[in-house]
Nucleic acid binder design. Sequence first.
DNA 1: GCCGTTTTCGGCCCGACTGTTTTCAGTCG
Length: 548
Amino acid sequence: MSESGTLTNGEVARVFERIAGIMEIQGENAFKIRAYRNAVETLNTLPEPIAQVAAAGRLDDIPGFGEAIQAKVKDILATGTTALYERIKDKVPDGVVEMLSIPGLGAKTVRQVWEGLKIESIAALEIAAQSGKLTELPGMGEKTVQKILQSIERYRRYSGRIRIGDALPLAESLISAIQNFPVVSEAHIVGSVARGRETVANINLAAAATSPAEALQGFTQLPQVSSIVSQDERSARVVLHGGMEADLFVAAPDEFAELLDERIGSAAYNEARRAQTEVSADLLKQVPMEIRENGGEIEAALAGTLPTLVTLADIRGDVHAHTTASDGKVTIQQMAVAAKAHGYEYMAITDHSQSLYIANGLTPDRLRAQIAEIRALEDSLGIRIFTGSEVDIKADGAMDFDDDLLQELDIVIASAHMHNNQDKDAQTKRIIKAIENPNVDLIAHPSGRIINRRDPFDFDFDAVVAAALRTDTALEINAAPERLDMSDVHARQAGAAGVKILINTDAHSIENYDLMRYGVLVARRAWLTPHNVFNTRPLAEFEAWLHR
DNA sequence: GCCGTTTTCGGCCCGACTGTTTTCAGTCG
């Protein structure tokens, strides 16, 4: 644990996460545990550094931060730990707490595995599962063991890759510090973060410096840095607080263009570029960073057919958002004001439908009251507010509201949140049935994946694209960094087929509107232009499509 | 542990799914 006074929100959150995990295994009060987990969630989504909030004496303003959690935040910021954690940390081994991150393993099972079989790590759990020892436990059958083995495999596959939503802000904080070094004339994020990949293994940065040695020295001494892995005359690799690795590559100013050229594209891109002798450096400069993946961009540059990719400035509306009526954090009015502040011409309120109890989904009566509320508010706010709903797709593909209610809404978003373990054929039919409902305008987060946590469900994407095209139904690029769904690959396929694509943040708070840029990154990686992304259209044209 | 004009205690998101259980516990969203 770092002793410095500049702990990140993520580091503070990790202490609370460990506390919650230990308490959970010890069977403490579930609500107490939830209070800590809520604090973790809050810290991970807080729009400013918790150290700054604490320094300004504003911890009390954070919802869910009461007396006890505030005191612990202060402890952790000052000392890297807190008395409660020091008292309980040795009661449960770290490896046992880590087992909680295996999907399908809850606190009760972990405790049983630990106390019953003396298993104290995921590796030991895997061996016990393979040898059949695990089935000695009561309630532990062959199917459960197989599920655990699959979960361990998936956990291994996911770990080590950081989501772009975590990596990009960290890269930006490093680059702005580096740009302030007197010897540095220019510095940029490069590598997979610059290309906007959905997950990255590390952060790569490049700087032009009159004194490379001084620039590297400054880099390794930044407060974000926890330790130095390696260093030579032209580069340094460090580990950041939180465990991510970051590399800085340095060149003299007159050699910097060449360095950037080498460090932005993927390995496949660099290889293809070297093989193409007729392509000039000037021509390659026109290739947008995000598509330097050897996916046809070099050929397009040569042919003069590079796309003009969609930008954040092209977006005119964000039409997927939640309020306190379901699981959002603020009111209709606050969301509308925030959307207007983002320069949008239109937005939509799309709270969850009745079946999603966990998110306090709206009943038909509550939704009708909300429609009236929006109509009464809209004129005073200076932004077009579409009435809408994020309606659950039921197991058989039917919508969670009757058609007469759906017809009363400006926009209907269909989402598969539940019943997603059906076989490929059934799942595909179900999504297509939703697409074919004439009231449905958009399919949200089509694959249902949660990056690093849940695989996409099994469905026939080709058939979904064909159905969307046939019915003029849009498909979403959900910009939430844990979703980014459609993926870049699916979005490119859908865009090339001519399907309307909307990029939405699925905002549950005002701050969430800022996540739009991650959705735009996905769209750019998918070669999408403003023509493909329909929420770049002016209000009249967008509205005409909704009422088609 | 947090929260609150039904405030200083008693609630706190609640139903579905899965596998194993013989009537339900654990996990998840």
